[in-house]
Amino acid sequence: MPSRTRPIEKFAQAVAKCSTEASLYGKCIVADYNSVHKDQCLTEFLRLKRCYMAAAKKT
């Protein structure tokens, strides 16, 4: 393995800390996945993203 951590790995680690938010967002999409439109689950997504940003800062 290369010694430095790839950006995608850091990303994955940060996202892994937000499983609750990710699951809520996923549920919102899956609830009605036949007619998904832009920003349908914006609030859930922003919550997920905020969590990710916080987690990414810590590491």
């Binding site: 990303f11 990710a22 699951s23 967002y25 999409i29 899956v30 997504f45």
Partner: peptide
Amino acid sequence: KKDVLLANEGIYREL
């Protein structure tokens, strides 16, 4: 895009 990857992670896991 990072946003799409982030969203994808949530949807894939849920679906």
